[in-house]
Every structure is written in C-alpha cells, then in structure tokens.
Write a protein that binds this DNA or RNA. Sequence first.
DNA 1: GTCTCTTGCCTAATAGGCGTAGCTTCCTGC
DNA 2: GCAGGAAGCTACGCCTATTAGGCAAGAGAC
Lengths: 189, 189
Amino acid sequence: MARAGLTGERLVRAGAELADEVGFEHVTVSALARRFGVRTASLYSHLENSQGLKTGIALLALEELADRAADALAGRAGRDALEAFANAYRDYAREHPGRYAAARLRLDPDTAAASAGGRHAQMMRAILRGYDLAEPEQTHAVRLLGSVFHGYVSLEAAGGFSHSAPGAQESWAWVLDRLDALLRGRSAG
Amino acid sequence: MARAGLTGERLVRAGAELADEVGFEHVTVSALARRFGVRTASLYSHLENSQGLKTGIALLALEELADRAADALAGRAGRDALEAFANAYRDYAREHPGRYAAARLRLDPDTAAASAGGRHAQMMRAILRGYDLAEPEQTHAVRLLGSVFHGYVSLEAAGGFSHSAPGAQESWAWVLDRLDALLRGRSAG
DNA sequence: GTCTCTTGCCTAATAGGCGTAGCTTCCTGC
DNA sequence: GCAGGAAGCTACGCCTATTAGGCAAGAGAC
C-alpha cells in the first residue's frame, strides 16, 4: 500500500490549512485523516491526541505571527512601528482566521513558556521604546495594545463591523492614530 | 415516572450555569441531560438541537450583560459612565466566564438583529454623548471601546495578565483613564 | 537476490456525543 | 372515566476520539 508520508510536522501544517478553511473549532483528527486519504487511527502514531494537534497548530500560528510582526517591525520606530506591527496582526488574522483562532488557544504554562508568546510581548515593548513610558506604565501599555489589537481583530472577524458604515479599515486607521497620540501623551489631532 | 419539568427556558438557564462551571465549549446536550437526570433524547422536545442550545445561552448572556450595563449606566455621564460600563463588562466576564464566552458566539444575522446586541451599541453611543464626537468619529470610538473591553477581558480570562506584575486591576484602571483622556481629546494627566 | 526488521498504515473495538423515530405513560378537559 | 396531547423513554444510526494488535513495504545486511 502506498504510504502517505505522515509526520507530526506535516499533520500540524495540514491542520493549520484545514483550520483556515473550515474554522479552528472544526479541526478534527478524522477530518485531517480524510484529507490525507488515511484512516483516523493512523494519525495517532504521529500525534499524541486531538489536543496535541490543536496545541501544535497554536504554536505554529504564534510562531508565524511573531515572524511576520518581526519583519514588519524591522527598521521602524515610533508610530511607524506601531502601525506596521498592528497591521501585521490584523493582516495575519484576515488571511489566516483559523490559525489566528488557534493562536488564542489557552496553553498550559509550560507550553506557553516555550512558545513564541514571549516574542510578542518583547516586540510590543520594543515599540514602546519609541514612546516615553516608564514602568509600570509600559506594562499597562503592553496590555492596552494587546487588548486593542486582539479585540479589534476578533470583533472584525466575528463580523461585528461588516454591516455598518464607515468601513472597518477607516476605523482601524482612526484607532491607530488615537492610540499613537495616547502613547505620546498628547491627543488632539 | 416523575417528570423533570423540562422547558426550553429552564434548559437554557441550566446550560448557562453549566457553561460557567465547565466552560462554554464543554456544554453538551448530554451533559445537560445528565444534570436533569433525564435521557439525552428527551431534551430534543424542548431544543432544536445542540446549536440552538448554545444560541439560547448566548442570547441570555447578551441580555443579562445589557441589563447590568444599563443598571451601571443609570444616572451617570462622562468618565463616570465610561468606568461603570466598562466595569459591568469586566465583572460579568469574571463572574460568568462561560456565559461571557457564549456572548461571543457568532450569531446568524437574523438572530443577531433580534438579540440584545443592539442595546450594547446604543449604550456605548450614550456614553459617548458625554464626549464631543461627531460622526464618523463616534462610530470609530464605539469600535474602539468594544475592542478594548472585549480584548482586555478576554486576554485576562485567558490568563494573560496573571503571571506578571502589576496586577490586572491596576492596568485596567490605567487603561480606562487613558481611554477617557483619548475620548476627551486630551491625554496628559 | 534473499532475509529480516523496522516502521507505517491497517482493522477491530470501545466509549461517548448528536440526532431521529416511534412508543408509553401521565395529566388534563370534558 | 375517557380521549388526546405532552413528557420522557428505548432503540438506533452516524460521527469523533483513542487504544491494541496485525501485516506488508521498504531498508539494510549478507
């Protein structure tokens, strides 16, 4: 019988594609097996279990998102960096809704510590170096940025902004502008 | 046989309690039936299906949350209103994590239109009357508030703020303060 | 070119969730 | 005291998750 060439890596990668197509909550071991033309049970040599698959997709997404954000940040500072970073987030979520949802999966502390999650926080702090914030304000600001980015992106993904004017893009630009002003400590504009 | 006294209403209510106890994603028709000491199939006289149960819980949560927010808002304006509203959101999410998660369920357009979702938007606009924002800024601001509240609350619920100083409460106060300044059009403070 | 051994995918089987069909039994109105 | 409907039941079919054990394809030794 022709072998399908399954590996943990390939399964996670295919799982991520599946997530983008059908939604992260519909990623199942069975669906993944179907995609490879293989029996469900066959995946268990390469996967701990269903949860492990989901965790793998989450880790992949966190890594990809961190890579994109890092690229976007390269050579930028201040408002420029803020916007590039924010857009990296939003674009990733729009292009890869399933992966983005996966990235929000609650990980156990050890897994989380070994994930790219830390890079995300580091990058936000790097952006904030362009503004003048000492601790504990800097931590507060990291949390604010995380909240706004995640909140906006997930409300947009849920369709919250799609049935009213103005468009989601305009509000996004306004939000980033106001956020920049807020961090600079001024706001009239 | 002793009747359990099932009704759609009671099932949804019990489903909401179950959600708070075990998490919204673990609410199942079977678990609900067990809770009533009844066979799974018996619930289908009162429930369309599993999705209908979840939708019911979502609608209940939206309603409850709107009621709380309305209470919090009564007699307040400006910054006071902003903080009361924000705290109503956060407190509800902390007391009822399962219900809060349910409230984020994506509803089909008709259901969404008939839900308390509109009240939420109306209340945000009411708060913004205390600030000086014309359209389209007002809509942008509604989206910003929604993003920050939802984003902060969901990151906090995911444990994102629990393993570092300062505490989530302090950041929350800072965020509300900055948000108020941002909306007022000033920010040094 | 054959032997054998590992590995990769298979079948079989259990357990649990969702949902439908059709049955029984209790309660109510008359 | 009976007819009819509502409430919950049994039985079933299908889907997903997961474990255990089997067999054959391909790799390396000779």
